[in-house]
């Protein structure tokens, strides 16, 4: 039996993505190594979700390349998972929702059952295993989505604003799940609007603005002293922060 090489590092080289004649991701270069969580922050329309979809292979770049360490595209696809901001729950039970992608990946039946039970226990959804997934609360659905992704045992887990519009308790529960998944060895790459959450989870921050990666720094350093003026204004939470950023730039020029 051959074992596939590690999935990471992931390299994005001069990646460009356009839609409707607009360049939404501009000459993006970055590299993700295995290790602590990376969190992508930025305002609405910065291209955070697009960035994740390009990494996850759901979108193909118009220019540039997205390359994994594992050259086998199929194996690379199978070793990553993504949780969407609004995950789609299949019209079946909670446990069947976890079971489904495992069956797609031809995981043996006994292993499927074992992983489903583990995922339910991890997410604290065991008592709801036979409930229809679509009648769960939004918070429970989000936990189920994370558990479903975890059951795939991904080497890399992408999370697109996984706690958007969740209350603090549900946010806490989802964050705990993310930490548990990271503790089991998965690389976490997630986007968020919530700066407090970014501080709690991130080891490093990537600041994206209008499709450009403006700053990448260790989380502590980023929140202490962002180098980019737009990032500074964003972190300060100034409502018209992008105008302030422009003004600062002009003053400096």
């Amino acid at each position: 039996m051959t074992t596939s090489p590690p999935l990471l590092p992931l390299q994005l080289s001069d990646v460009v993505f356009e839609a409707g004649g607009k360049r939404l991701i501009k000459d993006l270069n970055c590299r993700f190594e295995a290790g602590p969580p990376s969190v992508i922050i930025g305002p609405n329309g910065a291209g955070k979700s697009l960035f994740l979809k390009l990494c996850h292979g759901m979108l193909a770049p118009m220019q540039g390349q997205v390359t994994w360490n594992d050259p086998d595209a199929v194996s690379a696809r199978l070793n990553q998972a993504m949780v969407f901001q609004r995950p789609v729950m299949l019209r079946r039970s909670v446990s069947a929702n976890i079971h489904y992608p495992l069956k797609l990946r031809k995981v043996g039946k006994a292993e499927r059952v074992r992983r489903t039970e583990e995922a339910l226990a991890l997410a604290g959804l065991g008592r709801l295993r036979d409930h229809p997934a679509r009648v769960l609360s939004f918070g429970e659905q989000q936990k189920l989505a994370v558990a479903r992704a975890w059951a795939l045992k991904p080497q890399v887990l992408f999370l697109d604003e996984p706690t958007a519009s969740l209350d603090p308790a549900a946010t806490h529960a989802v964050e705990e799940l993310i930490r548990a998944i990271h503790a089991q060895g998965a690389k976490i790459i997630m986007t968020t609007h919530d700066l407090s959450q970014a501080k709690r989870i991130a080891d490093e921050i990537l600041f994206l603005f209008r499709g450009r990666l403006l700053e990448r720094a260790p989380a502590a350093q980023f929140f202490e002293q962002p180098q980019n003026d737009l990032a500074q204004a964003f972190v300060k939470g100034e409502l018209l922060w992008w105008k302030l950023g422009k003004a600062n730039r002009k003053r400096r020029d």
Binding site: M58, R77, M82, F84, V88, P101, L104, R148, L152
Partner: peptide, 12 residues
């Protein structure tokens, strides 16, 4: 339209 991204991401 509703399921596409999710199903493809899950491996379908």
């Amino acid at each position: 339209l509703e399921y596409r991204d999710q199903l493809l991401s899950l491996g379908a």
